[in-house]
Each structure stands twice: as C-alpha cells, then as structure tokens.
Design a binder for these strands. Structure first.
Lengths: 269, 269
DNA sequence: TGATTTAGTTGATTTGAATCAAGTGTACGG
DNA sequence: CCGTACACTTGATTCAAATCAACTAAATCA
C-alpha cells in the first residue's frame, strides 16, 4: 500500500523489508532492542536510566514484520502481552457481529496497543496492521514484575495509561460536539502533530488508512469524509491526492477545530 | 436535590449529613477509613491484604462533605491528588470558553476521579459535585511511592487505569455509532448496572444529574433527551417522574442498545 | 493485457436530531 | 405564601449529514 509512494531511496536488498513509505530496514536491524531504538524517547523507555532500559529490553520480543491486513490480536484472544508499534501503522477496532468494524484508533511508531485489556483476561478490541509494520511484543506479566522493582518504569507506565485516558477524552469531546469539518480538521492536525514528534514532515504525509476507516473513526460516512476533504482543498487549506496529504494552512484548520461545530455553542448546564 | 425524594428513614440528627437519597451518615462515620469502608470491594483496596489496606488507609484524607455545585478541582488546577467518591455523585466536564460545559462522565461511589491528569502537571477537566457527597482524597505522590513497594496495589492501579480506558472506548462506540434512543438506553442500563454493583436497586433510582447534563454527556440536545425518555415511557420500557426512573423492560432496552443505530449498520472497511 | 473488483468522488434525496418557540410545572427566594 | 426563575416538556421548523445512486479511477487478478 505504501510502497508505490516511495521516494527515490536506495533499493532494498532482497532480505530487507520495506516497513513504511519512507523507511527501509534490514532484517538485522529489527533485532536491535530498546537501547538502540530510535523510539527511545517516545516509547516505554522514556526517562529510564540506561540500566533500566537494558532490563526492559530483555523482555521485548521482536516478531517478524507484519503486512497489511495481518492481525496483532482479535477480540476475544487471551490477553498476554502489550504490543508496541516500532515502524508502520496499526488500527484498533471493535468488530461488529455483521462483519463491520468501528475503528477505535490509529497507532504510530512508539505507541502501545492493548492497554484496554490489562484489566481483563481477553482483548475487547482487535488490532490490524495498516501497512507493513514491525511490532515489539512484551509479556505483560513479566513487564508488571519489572515495573514493581523499577519505580521509574512504573511511573512511566502510569503516565502512558493516563495519557491514553486523556486522549480518549479528547476524542469524546470531538464526537460529542464537533461537526464534520471540525472532526476532519482535528484528525489531520492530530496526525500532523504525531508525525512531527517522530521527526517526519507535519505538513506532507501519506495516509495509511482508507477514507472508510477515517469515517468510521470519526463517526462520519465515507461520502462525508470525501466531500469535506474536497471542500478543504477548494478552500486551499490542504492539497489532497488520493492518500497523499499536504497541509497548507494550519491556522485555518485550527480555527475550524475550535469552532464548537454541530451545535452553535454549548449552553450552560 | 436528593432530600425531597428520601424514603421514610430515621431522621438525620442535626450534626449528621445527608449524602444521598438513600443514605444518611454521621459525621463520625466519615472519619472511618478504607479498612471499614463499604467500598472496600469496589475501590482501590480491592484485592489487597488487610495490611496493605491499612497502609493505603494512612494516605487517605477525608474532607468535609461537599454540596451540590462544589468543585473538587477545576481545569488548570495543579494536579496533586486523586479523588474517590465515597458517597454521592460527581460529574467531570470540560468547560468551554463561553461558559458552557461538555460533560465527560458521572462518577458513583468507589470511582476514582483525576486519572487523566497523572501524565500532566495540571487538570485538563473540572469536577463538580452533583449531590451532597463525601470525597476521599489521596496524594498521588505518596500513593505512587506506596504502589512501588506494594505489588498488589500497583496491579490494582493498572487494572483501574485500564478499566477507565475500556470504558472510554465504549463511550466512543456509543458516540460514534449510536442514535439518540440507543444512547439513552445505554446510559440507563449502564447506570443501572453500576447501581446494582453498589447494592442499590438496578431498576428504581433517582438521577442526580439534569436532563441538560445527560444530553451534554451523550452528545444530544436537552429536548432530544426529554423526547426520547417520553417515548420510552410511552413504549412501557421505563417509567419517568422527574428525576425518578424505573426500568420496566430491560431486554427491550438492551435490544435498543445493540441496534447499530444512526447508520443502518456498519459496512466492511 | 483486459476484466473485474474495490476505493473514492460527486450529486440528489431523505431524515434524525438540532434549533427555534411556546408553554407548564417545580423549585426557590423573599 | 406568593412571585420569579429555572428545569423540563412538547410542537414546528430547519439543517447537517446519512443514505441512495451513479459514476470514475485505481488496484487486483485471471
């Protein structure tokens, strides 16, 4: 899905793996663990001493790269480990009985997947790879034991769980109050910000998810997503070419986000 | 607010405090700490040894009862402690610049408030008391230190944070996919279930929040909340009299919840 | 390579819920 | 106890976004 957008980069060797549109890693390199990981400052090890990182590192299992459509886990699977996106992108979703999916989130490198299952014995959501991705896996039981003797790691874990809650809260605000334009604008700016933190361009990127998935995530119909993107382009706020997005006018997008949206404005309760 | 609905119970003494429509506690009793708390099996101490409970207990600060409209904290306040509802009810919300409020959650006894602020220095939401409530307060710094040397408590904390994430996820599903009827039905059943866990009637209860607050929480206009409740009553699924709610037909409500709602049904992505 | 499927766009129409507008009943302050 | 304010209800109207429908362009595959 991503391959056809590759910029002219050194051609991958046979044994190498294309993990995203901008990145090619050798099979050797996926064996590198936390202490050398480029996500050191985005991921679990953030703020840990080199010593602690090494111990954490010992728990991480590096699976073979997964490809578009592969599952990390399915709803109902027993919960045993957390998954961390190393490269690529993953979506989590709630499968509906009729075969449909409600997308719950898109996950970029350094983001942890499966936090909602800690309190349970099995997963309540499913996770699927959007583009070829390298995924770290960490046994939660072992991890929990390690955090019990590593205060910094425990603190970091609280931080991450809390961040997740805060992000969900923002999403509730978005779904509860914002109209279609504000939702799309928020979505694009959020993605942009997360890409920036990863050292990628915040204004020029490729979407690894379909319009349908975006719609599902934002509570909108595909047609609405399409129409609003076109409108944004007509208004010179963005440029769209299929999955390629360029953000041209950040402040206009931000203004849209803040506009209360759907309902003129919140009344006093 | 709750007082006028009180069932014929022994009249409270002058120094006593009415904390909810069904419960009157003496000022003395609010000094009772975790080890005697009726929420022992719903709250933080769940699964802890008596010894650990005692240590946790030492950190808990019991404030004076708060009354309707009192703030636990406001957005922007420095985050220092977690709050736990002991009796009563609390709402959390995101204040909007124009003075409006987007309700983020309603919190019953045993539920922890402020988990979204752990990763930050200040609160991102505000919390206000809906009816006279007793609130436990616990310094997060001290608590964190205690969890670092109490594996069971740490585990419980992970569990609670994860549960919160899972609940938010359900809310995302609700806001993203469900129509007005499904939202109200979910709301009523959710409340019912939480009351049952607390030993209260799951089918006959009083709402401590206004229609406006329900609407804000569910992403609906007040008028819609009112209309749907009336419709439910016409269909004999519930009986409503102001804040008094009786659930008459659980299975009908459950069926409504599951109906995909707004959109006929999710398509494959 | 051409055929078929799938993703995305665009337009027309419908519709569920918001908004606007009265009205009623309950709570509350003097 | 009365008057005012506020919470809630109910009806009429509007509107944003869903649905329906048709079409185009990619992607996939035989």
């Amino acid at each position: 899905m991503a391959d056809q957008h590759s910029l002219p980069l050194p051609l991958p060797k046979e044994e190498d793996v294309v993990v995203s549109q901008f990145q090619v890693i050798s099979l050797e390199s996926i064996r590198i663990a936390c202490r050398n990981c480029s996500l050191l400052n985005l991921c679990l090890p953030t703020g840990l001493t080199p010593n602690d990182v090494e111990r954490l590192d010992g728990l991480i299992k590096h699976n073979h790269p997964l490809h578009r459509g592969d599952y990390l886990f399915r709803r109902g699977d027993p919960f045993r480990s957390l998954h961390i996106v190393k490269t690529g992108a993953v979506k989590t979703f709630a499968p509906s009985p009729e075969g449909g999916e409600q997308v719950l989130g898109f996950h970029l490198p350094g983001e942890i997947i499966g936090l909602d299952a800690i309190a349970r014995t099995s997963h309540i959501s499913s996770a699927k790879v959007l583009e070829t991705s390298a995924i770290c896996e960490i046994s939660f039981a072992k991890f929990e034991t390690l955090t019990a003797i590593t205060p910094d790691l425990q603190q970091q874990m609280y931080r991450l769980l809390s961040l997740e809650i805060g992000q969900n809260t923002e999403m509730l605000l978005l779904l509860g109050r914002k109209n279609a334009e504000a939702r799309l604008a928020s979505f694009l700016l959020n993605l942009s910000q997360r890409l920036r933190r990863r050292g990628l361009s915040p204004s020029d990127f490729y979407l690894s998810m379909s319009r349908h998935e975006i719609g599902s995530y934002l509570g909108l119909a595909v047609e609405t997503v399409s129409r609003v993107l076109t409108r944004f382009q007509d208004d010179k706020m963005i440029r769209v070419d299929r999955k390629h997005i360029e953000l041209l006018n950040f402040s206009a997008l931000m203004t849209l986000c803040e506009s209360a949206g759907q309902h003129r404005q919140q009344q006093r309760t």
